[in-house]
Every structure is written in C-alpha cells, then in structure tokens.
C-alpha cells in the first residue's frame, strides 16, 4: 500500500504547536513537524530530551495536552472513536521489542492481520511468512520469542509491524537494548526497509544510520526541536551550540 501512495507527496503526519506535560513537568514544548509520505526522518538528542515521548504521541500511546497531531488525515484526541484504525496503520517498533512471549514468532505476526484486519488464517500465514523472509528469519517461525537472540527478536518485531501493511513505521530506539554485535543486523533490516520506500520515523543514537538513510535529521533537547536539516548539512554544519556539543559527544568514539 505504501508503494502505491508513494507519489502523492502530501504530509502523512503533521504536528502543530503541540505541548505535553507530565503533571507539572513540561515534557514537550511547541512542537511543529511534518512528515511527508516516503520521507525517512531520524530524531536524535540526549536522553531525556523528549524524543521518545514525541514519537509515542504519534500513535497516541501518550496523550498531548495542547496543539494538534494529525495522522493520515485523522486528528488525535482523547474522545476519538477510531484510534485502533489509526494505530493499525502506524507500525511501531519498541526498544524492548514487546513481543508476545506466550505466542510463537508466526503467531505474533499473524495476530494483527487476523484479529484486526480480519484476514483469513491462510492469508495471514502467507503475509507473515513473506515478512519473516524479508527480515531473514523464516526458519524461526515456530519458535517462541524467548528462544531467539535480541537481534532476532527485534527483527520479528519489525516483521510483526509490517504484517499490518502500515503507512508509516515508528522506531523507538530499536537498537538501544541490544548487545553490540546484534545492532548491525537490525540496522541492515531497517536500511532495506527504507530503500523499499517506507515512510519511517526513527529515534536513535546510531548516527551512521542517520547519515546513510535519513532524508532529514531532527535534533531535540529539553523538549524542544532545536534543529532540523538534511543529514549532510546537519552533520557538517550544525547551527546551534547544543547540536555541536551533542555531535561532538556521540561522534568522538
């Protein structure tokens, strides 16, 4: 589906003047952001800068208090009726995978299509196997998540999201919980996905991935968007002091 709509270059997500509070704490301040179809955006920033919170507002796992968040033409708010439909069209990959441990890899992948999209079991099975092949682990289909390595689990989680044919994929620090040797297999899968034209928003510290894949890099600090630019300009000519300081810290190694 994402491929067919690829040429209609409108924004799929637009955020205007959004603010989020946790009690008295002002977590996100005056966020304005638009993501076009087919765009690959990387959000980076120091921990506690609100980047995870921001991405979780996009499928309303978190609520915002003011401003507007519009996903695929639907305004997100507290009393909305069709949040499940919006969520089913927005794939999300979590830091800790959040696979269902009591279900096999295959069942994890068929659950969404069967229960939400009412796809018949055989078709759901075919969809699941197609995406498990795409993330290169079809042979693990009958195992349980706990029997897989972290990298494998995260690839299953990506496949699980893809089975819903999402219009946009959100990645919330997908490699932060992985052992170092497993980071690259997940990043490779994500790069493949980007090359296929998927609209992606990725919260990550992997600056190499950002340089290679992103159309745009957004830097956040203290709940605000500080800087937003093309990757080459962002890395080679950062505008603000905070960006420079952040880049010097993450790129020194």
């Amino acid at each position: 589906m994402s491929e067919t709509k690829h040429n209609t270059k409108g924004p799929i997500i637009s955020i205007r003047q959004m603010n989020k509070y946790y009690g008295d704490f002002h977590a996100l301040t005056d966020i304005n952001l638009e993501i076009s179809i087919g765009e690959r955006m990387v959000i980076c920033g120091p921990s506690g800068s609100g980047k995870s919170t921001l991405i979780r507002c996009l499928n309303r796992l978190e609520a915002h208090q003011s401003g507007s968040v519009n996903v695929n033409g639907v305004e997100l708010h507290q009393r909305m009726k069709d949040i499940d439909k919006v969520r089913s069209e927005v794939g999300m990959v979590f830091q800790h995978f959040n696979l269902f441990p009591h279900m096999t890899v295959l069942e994890n992948c068929t659950a969404g299509p069967m229960w939400v999209n009412k796809v018949p079991p055989e078709d759901a099975h075919n969809i699941a196997m197609k995406y498990l092949e795409r993330v290169n682990i079809p042979e693990q289909a009958d195992k349980y998540p706990a029997q897989l390595s972290g990298g494998q689990q995260q690839r299953v989680a990506i496949a699980r999201s893809l089975c819903m044919h999402p219009k946009v994929m959100l990645f919330d620090e997908p490699t932060s919980a992985l052992d170092p040797e497993m980071v690259s297999e997940v990043l490779d899968t994500m790069t493949d996905l980007a090359q296929s034209g998927m609209t992606m928003i990725v919260v990550t510290h992997e600056m190499g991935f950002a340089k290679k894949v992103a159309d745009r890099v957004v830097f956040m600090d203290e709940g605000r968007i500080v800087e937003s630019n093309e990757p080459i300009a962002f890395f080679e000519n950062p505008q603000s002091d905070r960006t420079k300081k952040f880049l010097s810290q993450v790129l020194v190694h």
Binding site: D84, K85, G91, M92, F94, N98, F100
Partner: peptide, 23 residues
C-alpha cells in the same frame, strides 16, 4: 504483566477486550 505488552498490543490496533483476552 509488563506494560510493554499493552503498548505492543495497542500499537497493532488491538481493542481492550482483545488485549485482555488474548494477551
């Protein structure tokens, strides 16, 4: 049950009853 299970299910578009029953 870890809250990640709720978030993982919600992100797939599961409704409350389904999450409760199946997850």
């Amino acid at each position: 049950i870890d809250h990640g299970q709720w978030e993982g299910s919600r992100a797939l578009g599961f409704k409350f009853g389904l999450i409760m029953r199946k997850i």
